[in-house]
Amino acid sequence: MLRDVTFGQYYLTKSFVHSMDARIKLILCLLFMVGIFFVQSFVGFAFVALFLLVAIGFSHVPLGSIVKSIKGIIFLLCLTALLNMFFTKDGNLLVSWWIFEIYDQGLIVAAKMLLRLVFLVMGSSLLTLTTTPVDLTHAIESLLKPLKVIKFPAHELALIMSLTLSFIPGLIEETDRIISAQKARGASFDSGNLIKRAKAFVPILIPLLVGGFRKAEELANAMNSRCYEGSTNRTQMRVMKLSWRDLVGALITVAVFATIFVVYAMRSQWSTITWLYF
């Protein structure tokens, strides 16, 4: 039941997107995440969807794996859609019941917000599905390196992130095991009121926490045994090199979002103000 968490799960295959430099992918992903909030029309969303589909096609990741990542935030999606639907009071009134009023603009805003969030999650999971956590942390480390001047612990931060990511599947498995063990002894997790249910989770959390500390200690021993001493004098096996793929990928993505920014600026009601920023 807990196994279908896709986040942080690398999809192993060979593809154009997989062999792109992690740093470039990370920057492009950030651009994508910012850019998606500048899309305002459905035509724009169709444009982004097309781009996303092409990117997914070149990544050889099955669409199912990416769609699966949306499942995790389905509650958030529904909530956002509902809030947008009921609290937008623009346009023509379509339905009115008790204190609820739905306007046509509300539906449009809700649909756009929904699309935005779905694309956001799809785009970022495309990054994590095509980039190993190790590469991702190398990329973050490398991009944050300039901050070392102000003693920012870039390497340590990156390592903590990568360890966290690689320990998530193990912890999920352990949680599953503990839940089964407690169920076997007669614990029930889905009956009673909210407080009772919350209390039922204490016997899961405590062993999980204790197990987590034990794992952490063993890991620390293993890392120490392999001569870990922080970032001093550390080298890396993989040398990150830019290739033509990075140039092509970056050019396409930048072109797509440059178009989006330009369209936004042109359409915008405050175009005069926005132009000042460009």
Binding site: V134, S162, R214, L219, R226, R238
Partner: peptide
């Protein structure tokens, strides 16, 4: 074996030791 693994790809995990020692790539 699960608690002494630092990376999620075999070769990266094996490389952890020599990387710490500052061996050239």
């Amino acid at each position: 074996p699960d608690n002494q693994r630092v990376a999620s790809i075999v070769e990266e995990d094996v490389a952890f030791g020599p990387e710490n020692l500052g061996v050239p790539s």
